[in-house]
């Protein structure tokens, strides 16, 4: 129904990027670069009069999720963002951007708030994944993420999700069910961290580089696969080289998308959001037919041939 147009400086043609690409592993390293602008910094320069809101009203305030209300060119919006640190100390405070269940429950509170007052919702995704420790398990990490995805999928207000650095697994998708999903040019978005994939498939986290190559988590690949709608251009050399240019570029993209989605009737918006995710997945239906036969050892094949 609504194709993302190139206004707002967003790149929507994967061919336009072909000559600028490094390997997927370079992309992962760049996306994790500590000097990249993180959520709080971007919020500060993109939105005016941002007021942070705290707590999930159930357990505690998760510092890995930052949310609140701000203004985007005079339009009030709700912002939900994942925060990584720019230094080791800050990273420990923010738990390296890995949320606990209460972080997702705080996000859900914000989604509801956005829905009630029909404020556009903007999410900034930057996490290696949801926190996998015992406390998180005990408080229902899986349930919190599932509920967050569910609330977003039927939320009666426009949603713009932007992967600004690392989008890792369900922990990222919990903020990622948008009408429009954008990525910064050097961000990555994957089903699991390359280390996690390597730990499971290759039984060693040291194989992360190989896993990254195989999973193809970089922004141009995902644009080509149709998982994201557009890429927000970064300054030459990456977002960390010029934070001011980066936030100006992000702001331009967000303003254009909010303006565009504001004009779409709500019923169309919701059915387009459903169809957007409904269309994802690759399968073939060859019809009924026998499955491939179990391969037989060479001596059995020889025996059969001898009989004929």
């Amino acid at each position: 129904m609504q194709a993302v147009t190139s206004d707002g400086g967003v790149i929507i043609d994967p061919a336009a990027l072909s000559e600028r690409r490094g390997s997927p592993w370079d992309a992962v390293r760049l996306a994790r670069d500590q000097r990249r602008p993180h959520s709080i910094e971007l919020i500060g320069s993109v939105f005016d009069r941002f007021q942070e809101l705290h707590g999930d009203r159930g357990y505690r305030d998760d510092p890995a999720v930052v949310c609140g209300i701000g203004e985007l060119e005079g339009r009030a919006v709700v912002i939900v963002a994942q925060q990584k640190g720019a230094s080791t100390d800050e990273n420990i405070e923010r738990n390296f951007g890995m949320s606990y269940p209460e972080g997702y429950r705080k996000a859900i509170r914000m989604y509801r708030l956005a829905e009630r007052f029909r404020l556009p919702l903007i999410t900034l995704i930057d996490t290696p994944g949801a926190y996998p420790g015992p406390e998180a398990e005990e408080r229902g990490q899986g349930e919190a993420i599932a509920k967050s995805i569910q609330v977003m999928s039927v939320l009666r207000t426009p949603i713009i999700a932007v992967v600004i650095g690392e989008g890792g697994s369900g922990g990222a998708l919990a903020l990622g069910v948008g009408d429009v999903v954008l990525m910064l040019e050097n961000a990555v978005y994957s089903v699991i961290t390359p280390e996690g994939c390597a730990a499971i498939l290759f039984r060693s986290a040291a194989e992360a580089e190989r896993a990254a190559m195989a999973m193809r988590p970089s922004a141009p690949d995902l644009l080509a696969l149709g998982i994201v709608d557009g890429l927000v251009p970064e300054p030459a050399g990456g977002a960390h080289t010029d934070h001011i240019v980066m936030s100006a570029s992000l702001k331009r993209a967000l303003v254009a998308q909010v303006e565009r989605l504001d004009r779409v009737p709500l019923a169309d918006l919701l059915s387009a959001r459903y169809d957007r995710f409904r269309a994802m997945g690759v399968w073939v239906d060859p019809g009924a037919g026998a499955l491939a036969e179990r391969s037989r050892p060479w001596w059995r094949r020889m025996l059969n041939r001898a009989r004929l």
């Binding site: 089903v191 999973m215 998982i227």
Partner: peptide, 19 residues
């Protein structure tokens, strides 16, 4: 999620939940 299908497998979470 099936890692062999990368981010597409991740999107199945959103798809099934919406339905």
């Amino acid at each position: 999620a099936r890692m062999q299908e990368g981010t597409i497998a991740l999107m199945q979470l959103a798809k099934t939940v919406a339905a």
